[in-house]
Nucleic acid binder design. Structure first.
Lengths: 153, 153
DNA sequence: TATTGTTATACTCTATAACTATA
DNA sequence: TATAGTTATAGAGTATAACAATA
């Protein structure tokens, strides 16, 4: 029952040197997978939460702007936004300046949902982090800042 | 006609304290999103590559073991493995000891594909990492080890 | 004509439930 | 009966292409 692959024991075919990019990619993908697996039944999807978070941070945006920010295509964002609107978490309003545009607003329910969902999402990770040493936590704190720089590029 | 939301301008409602779990989750999700976005047209999916990598590391495994390792359900793994077998990257063989079991082997083509795909996947991340300082890279190296511990829990 | 958003449609990856074969 | 794997089916999230409305 192999659940903890040992990175220090490469097999005979695994003779390339472990690059930082390679080891980091594996660690990121694996941790994110575990994180996502903690999603409760009633939780919002990653994409839905990302939209709410973006609106919370930047204020009302059009579906096109949201699509660009989340790096998905406009039709996909239309679906995401409509789902959130059906849940009452965002509201679509006309743009007085340009009738082609729609402006997506966060509702008070949406703001509340962000907090609740974030807390639920962070619960598993918090427990895992509690089992680490102070030094390990400091490493992750520093790494988070660096990763944000990398992701923003 | 704003098309690029400004990430440097938080709005007044963004006043919750940043917990380590929260900041780390955001950094992980964002970086992984960017990483995934680099996927070329002909690349294997994350799940497919993960299976090849696991087989490379641990040797032949059954679909059930692979499903447990990748934390997906057996029927999903059946599809993934069949897709890889159709591509000639793995081979399904009978288990002489237990006729209920199937053993999935990596083929030479599969081994080659791992290398090619890994290189493509790591290209974007490598470029990004090259722009960091030595200290930042050291931080990410250390963090990768800690994240693997977290993900393995 | 170009732009914004939507609708129609399809593909990928995941899941649960039910089935087959073997232990 | 229990276990390993598969088949059937469905749901979520994404995409492209075509369309409507507006600039």
């Amino acid at each position: 029952m192999p659940t903890s692959p040992d990175l220090r024991t490469p097999n005979p075919t695994d003779d390339h040197e472990p690059s930082l990019a390679g080891e980091l990619r594996i660690a990121l993908v694996r941790t994110t997978r575990r994180l996502r697996a903690q999603r409760g039944e009633a939780d919002l999807s990653e994409g839905q939460l990302a939209v709410l978070t973006t609106l919370d941070r930047h204020g009302p945006l059009t579906p096109g702007q949201l699509a660009e920010h989340e790096r998905i295509r406009p039709p996909s964002m239309t679906r995401t936004v409509n789902g959130l609107a059906d849940l009452g978490l965002v509201r679509k309003a006309d743009d007085p300046a340009d009738a082609r545009c729609v402006v997506v607003h966060l509702t008070p329910e949406g703001s509340r949902e962000i907090e609740v969902t974030r807390r639920r999402r962070d619960a598993w990770l918090s427990v895992a982090l509690d089992e680490l040493t102070d030094e390990e936590r400091a490493t992750l704190h520093a790494a988070a800042q660096v990763l944000l720089k990398v992701a923003a590029r």
